[in-house]
Write a protein that binds this DNA or RNA. Structure first.
Length: 932
RNA sequence: GGGCCGAUAGCGCAGUGGUUAGCGCACCCGCCUGAUAAGCGGGAGGUCGGUGGUUCAAGUCCACCUCGGCCCA
């Protein structure tokens, strides 16, 4: 019973001779201070401060200390700039996953990481210092590099936190930390122990500007204009096979490699012939290319000799056009007749395929360039020249000796340094390698133990593993982890010794890797350490550093193992799909090399972020969008909603239009929460036993919400957030806002506060609020907690929504018969609404309450009962519905003749039954009797 | 140039080989003024990237092409 002093009295005004009462104070209208507008850019920082003050992340760890762990291992972004939309997408996805598993009851620690070594930071540091790498002490440079990395770690940490990413930001993993470097060296020691590491001469991508070897990942392909040349090599000895005076014709786009030529490669199966020309004499070329070449060079053909398959020409000796040494014809499957002449100029010092072919024929590796790309002293013709400048000199010389048949400019894709954007060269140098061959099978095997999502990821990774060459681990720079090798000054052996590496790892994990450049060998070598080959103690340190992919790849060992809140292998890694060859690959390689096992159970990938028209975002195109601008304009929850609503397994688009649209969706969700909160003002049923549901609409909506949460659970488990969002929006707009919530306003507002139907409905509203609030919490991290603060809850409820678990289902025993009926009623409702719309259009009625509807129901449908009539009338908000049976489902509406109740606004036949309230319907009269 | 992925309404997404291809938002036209910088109803909007094929039947299967993306050369 409502206490008397709480009862609002109806106020009356005398208007003409009738008493018009204002019944508004007798209604239970929604009341809440939950703001309609989110004002997210201003409010989100307040939440962040609150979470920090509460120690939310730590509170989660304590609350979940005894729950099963879920570990998403963070791929470290490079600490070299502000975050961009791709980084935001990545981190937000990770956060939503972590929060989902937290909601699902797991202990989910998240240790974010940073990749800090490598060329980009070293270049930035050099630029800041205004010096070149030769003008500065390595340790000073390293200190500057570390400062750069620390700066960006600080910046990015703030940005990530602003996005609502929850994690152990106080204790991230950082690849330049001494402990991490030590762990990486342990990984390397394991590789050494297994005999996977070797030193060899190999052509590697080399950047003459940065003076370092580059990994494949550090190469970019850009358009480049080359001077392509056709060069004739005189045949010296063909054992009478070829006509006298024949010259073998090669084509190359890199004239500067002619000084290193030692052979000409032919495909064993391609047919070759000698073409006698008026202009150039006898030329050996591929049959298939003869026509093309004749046109290009303007030959007049006299006759041809041959043809011979390439294998019959093996061993023919030609002469280098100006160096004069023997150049044999060799065979190689890499030769094609698609371009050039079908004869490939072979310089093992300057090309991988050339190197392989040359190795089979035991050819010498001529490599006349120094680290700066300058020909070393003693190189005929070009000594002292930069390699690019040699092109002109070589071409002039070939012209001079009559070997140049044609020069033509060629626009093509050529390898460039990712950092300095200059063209790179292939150059044979001494490098440290990890053998992929020796672990390839195990790598492939390990891919089968991993769940790949999307599924094609497994094939892609296996293809990657299949084609991967040995891993060049060394870099000739200073900003990185030193390769812990020594060279014996007596016997020139390169010393690599696993126990010694572990010893050094121990030192570096304590004191940091700068020490390697500050201290001599004696600091790192145990006392009495001798060269294992010759016993000499005269050892000097290696000064190359590791490829950064070994750094980040070692994270599986450095971060996961031994961490109190983590475990090895990780349950999940999630990065962009460019990481199959990057981090996923280096993680797998280091783990398999050291432990014979994949370091993750599952690999999930997302696509790239594109602009509104599906184009790559690029600073130079001016189509980039800064996530921090989005946060400032719309708020992080909107950015998160964008991530959640996108099908991220493919590439995703972002634009103002998309964000504005999401802003609308957000408002719809927010207002629905607001309406629920408003109607639940004063509700004290949180945590109490739920009532039995008798009302068909209530039973239907609880069932509908349950279905949705069930689907959402499946979607969340499959990381299909867009399905969660789209089904949520459907629930909110279609089921809740336009049907259920609109319909129940009448009972909420007009019934007596304690009316059983009204009370039952409030429990339902609370359930809807509770389920929705928890289920959107992983996505709308700020808004959900804001809702939570306003939501009715038990006294001992946790301080944040982010400490709650997945809601229990309110099982109401909704039957298929009920569902059939509701589905039918909803179908009727649509027809009735259309009929009402027709009479609204011709101004017969204003709102639905004024309409009385005649509904024709098909004979095939079940009979339309009295209860159906009441339900459908309520659901359509019409004054009345009269049904009869007919052929097809149709409805006709007209204006009701009944009077309007001034309190509930319904048109009913019983308005004015009671004299003291002539303007009220019977129901409202009775309600007032109870209330007053 | 090669491998892989993608293309459904302006936007975000659904669509087992089987009615006239759907949902939400935006848009247009109304209603309401007791969710109010809200809420409700209705409407319009598509050569399912293109071309060919398989099939009684193709958005869906196949081939080729175009465009875009990732990776490799």
């Amino acid at each position: 019973m409502v206490p008397r002093h709480d009862v609002p009295y109806a106020r009356g005004v005398i208007l003409f001779r009738r008493v018009i009462m204002d019944y508004r104070p007798t209604l239970q209208l929604p009341k809440t201070s939950f703001p309609m507008k989110g004002n997210l850019p201003a409010k989100e920082p307040e939440w962040l401060a609150a979470w920090a003050a509460q120690g939310l992340y730590q509170a989660q760890r304590e609350q979940r200390a005894h729950d099963e762990k879920f570990v998403l291992h963070d791929g470290p972004p490079y600490a070299n700039g502000d975050i961009h939309t791709g980084t935001a997408l990545n981190k937000i996805l990770k956060d939503m996953i972590n929060r989902y598993w937290t909601l699902a009851g797991y202990d989910v620690a998240y240790v974010p990481g940073w990749d800090t070594h490598g060329l980009p930071i070293e270049m930035r540091a050099l630029k800041q210092l205004g010096v070149s790498q030769h003008q500065i002490d390595p340790v000073a440079l390293r200190k500057e590099c570390a400062a750069v990395a620390r700066h960006y770690i600080g910046l990015m940490t703030q940005e990530f936190q602003r996005l609502g990413i929850l994690g152990d930001w106080e204790h991230p993993y950082i690849t330049m930390s001494p402990e991490y470097e030590g762990a990486e060296l342990e990984v390397f020691a394991a590789m050494v122990e297994k005999g996977l590491i070797y030193r060899d001469l190999k052509p590697v991508y080399w950047c003459p500007h940065c003076e370092t070897a580059l990994a494949e990942g550090e190469i970019e392909y850009h358009n480049h204009r080359s001077r392509a040349i056709y060069v004739a090599f005189p045949v010296k000895d063909s054992g009478d096979l070829l006509p006298a005076g024949t010259r073998a014709v090669i084509w190359t786009t890199t004239p500067w490699t002619i000084p290193a030529n030692v052979a000409i490669a032919l495909n064993p199966d391609i047919l070759y012939q000698v073409v006698e020309t008026k202009e150039f004499g006898f030329l050996l070329v591929a049959v298939d290319l003869t026509e093309t070449l004749a046109q290009k060079m303007g030959w007049t053909m006299v006759r041809t000799y041959g043809p011979w398959p390439g294998r019959e020409l093996e061993g023919v000796i030609t002469t280098h056009p100006y160096l004069g040494h023997d150049v044999p014809l060799i065979l190689g499957d890499h030769v094609t007749s698609e371009s050039g002449t079908g004869l490939v100029h072979t310089a093992p010092g300057h090309g991988m395929e050339d190197f392989e072919a040359g190795r089979q024929y035991h050819l010498s590796v001529v490599q006349p360039l120094n680290d700066q790309g300058i020909y070393v002293d003693g190189t005929p013709l070009v000594a002292g020249l930069f390699y690019q400048d040699a092109n002109a000199v070589v071409i002039d010389k070939l012209q001079e000796v009559g070997a140049l048949l044609l020069e033509e400019p060629l626009e093509h894709q050529y390898a460039h340094c990712w950092r300095c954007k200059n063209p790179v060269i292939f150059r044979a140098t001494q490098q440290w390698f990890m053998s992929i061959d020796r672990v390839r099978e195990k790598l492939t095997e390990a891919t089968y133990s991993v769940k790949w999502d999307p599924e094609w990821g497994g094939d892609r990774m296996r293809q990657m593993v299949e084609n991967r060459q040995d891993w060049c681990l060394s870099r000739q720079r200073v900003w990185g982890v030193p390769i812990p090798a020594f060279y014996c000054q007596s016997c020139h052996t390169a010393v690599l010794d696993a126990p010694l590496i572990r010893h050094i790892a121990g030192i570096i994990s304590q004191e940091g890797a700068d020490l390697w450049w500050q201290q001599g060998p004696e600091h790192f070598l145990p006392e009495d350490y001798k060269c294992p080959e010759c016993g000499s103690r005269d050892l000097v340190q290696e000064h190359d550093i590791f490829d950064v992919w070994l750094d980040s790849g070692s994270s599986q060992a450095a971060v996961l193992a031994g961490h109190r809140h983590l475990k090895w292998p990780a349950d999940l890694v999630l990065e962009g799909n460019d990481q199959y060859r990057g981090w996923f690959n280096s993680l797998l390689t280091t783990a398999v090399a050291a432990k014979d096992q994949a370091p993750y159970h599952m690999v999930l990938t997302h696509g790239m972020v594109l602009d509104k028209s599906g184009q790559e975002m690029h600073k130079s195109l001016g189509n980039t969008i800064d996530p921090m601008d989005i946060v400032a304009q719309y708020g992080a929850d909107i950015l998160r909603l964008w991530v959640a609503s996108s099908d991220y397994r493919n590439d995703v688009r972002i634009s103002d239009e998309i964000l504005r649209q999401l802003g609308e969706s957000y408002r719809k969700i927010r207002n629905t929460f607001r309406f629920l909160l408003g109607n639940l003002a004063g509700f004290d049923g949180a945590g109490k036993a739920r009532p039995h549901l008798a009302d068909p609409l209530n039973r239907w909506i609880v069932h509908t919400v349950n279905s949705w949460s069930g689907e959402a659970r499946v979607s969340y488990e499959g990381y299909a957030f867009h399905q969660v969002v789209h089904s949520l929006l459907h629930l909110v707009t279609t089921d809740l806002s336009s049907v259920y919530l609109d319909v129940i306003k009448d009972r909420l507002y007009t019934l007596a506060p304690n009316d059983p139907l009204r009370q039952e409905t409030l429990y339902v509203l609370h359930y809807i609020l509770d389920v929705m609030m928890r289920l959107v919490a992983p996505i709308l991290v700020f808004t959900s907690d804001e809702v939570y603060q306003y939501a009715p809850k038990e006294a001992d409820a946790p301080m944040s929504v982010h400490l709650l678990r997945w809601p229990d289902v309110w099982a109401v025993g909704y039957t298929p018969e009920e569902d059939e009926r509701m589905t039918r009623m909803l179908r009727y409702r649509e027809v009735v609404l259309k009929a009402l719309e027709r009479v609204r259009a011709d101004k017969t009625i204003g709102n639905a309450l004024e309409g009385v509807v005649t509904l024709t129901i098909p004979v095939s449908d079940p009979p339309f009962t009295k209860e159906d009539r009441a339900l459908l009338t309520e659901m359509t908000m019409a004054a009345d519905i009269v049904a009869h049976v007919g052929e097809t489902l149709e409805a006709h509406a007209e204006r009701t003749t009944w009077q309007r109740c001034e309190r509930c606004w319904r048109y009913t036949p019983d308005v004015g039954t009671h004299e003291e309230y002539p303007d009220l319907c019977e129901r409202c009269h009775d309600v007032l009797q109870v209330m007053l």
